[in-house]
Design a binder for these strands. Structure first.
Lengths: 165, 165
DNA sequence: ATTTTAAGTCAGCTTTGTTGACATTCCAAG
DNA sequence: CTTGGAATGTCAACAAAGCTGACTTAAAAT
């Protein structure tokens, strides 16, 4: 039964092994957010602010609606976060050129500075983990994470790549 | 410069590549929690209940203090969750045998049933991702996740393994 | 006998998510 | 030109799940 090879690969994974993967995700995600969280707590910001800054930095000029789709929250929830960022001078919201209903979001200089602080902290840990695990492990890591995403998330994940170079 | 090999491996990782890893973690974690979240929302429970059920199932008879250390929350926060689970007959809290200050936590039959429903949903996705990515990718995935954990989390992650067989 | 520890409780606060209702602006189709 | 619908923003109310601080009870340890 050669067509059953994936089935055999599957058999090899006991519930216990899969459970270990689940626990690894839980503990690793805590580490993943720990460093930015520390910086944010000094500034009366939270993880939601970090995520907004990240994806605005990633796609400068993005619209509110696009950001909503990426973040997967309600516009009311995002708006609260975005409003404080605009009020605090970290984000600029400009009326759209072609469609004036839209708002194009950009980071100000101060916004870029904070985004970089957060990003540097998070990247440092990620880079250290990558280095400790080695290049092949990194490829496997990325592969499993992609396979774990919802189809929508997966499309958006790749769409981010197309915009930047 | 043969001692610089890790340095060269590091050089190979641009900020952009590390950033993609960060985004992969963000999108994948959403997928990771999506299926249990759907089940929980029908039951007026949240992710915190799921985590408690998971780790009680994993270490039957565990104490409240041990659970606090694993989950990394305050006892007030955990207590609120634990109280509803005990009231709803999903968790049993028994006075400790050797040390009567402690409480030993166990799942009831109903608790096991819900835990299994949640666990099955989450494992199904994990298993599918593992199968799609292949065994070597799984090893790399686990390796990177472990390297991303805080030292405390990493110790607790391995401690869970020692208790069960 | 005193101190420390484990657990639980009460009160109040924060962040970040949710619904629902509603106003504004503006593009586009009729 | 009018109207319908889309994109955005806002108000209010609420919930989940975290937090701090203060306190009690019981049991163990010193």
């Amino acid at each position: 039964m050669p067509e059953n090879q994936t089935g055999e690969t599957l058999l090899f994974l006991t519930d216990e092994q899969v459970r270990q993967g689940i626990e690894a995700m839980f503990f690793a995600y805590r580490g993943f957010t720990a460093d930015p969280d520390r910086i944010l707590s000094d500034l009366a910001y939270g993880r939601a602010h970090h995520r907004a800054l990240h994806f605005i930095a990633r796609s400068p000029g993005t619209t509110v609606n696009n950001l909503l789709n990426i973040l997967g929250v309600t516009k009311q929830s995002l708006n609260r976060v975005l409003r404080t960022l605009v009020e605090d001078g970290l984000v600029e919201s400009r009326v759209g050129a072609s469609d004036k209903r839209e708002r194009n979001l950009e980071l100000t200089d101060a916004g870029h500075e904070l985004e970089r602080r957060l990003s540097d902290a998070q990247r440092a840990r990620m880079r250290a983990a990558y280095r400790a695990a080695g290049p092949e492990a990194v490829a496997g890591f990325r592969h499993v994470l992609e396979a774990m995403m919802d189809p929508d998330s997966h499309r958006r994940y790749h769409a981010l790549r197309e915009v930047s170079q």
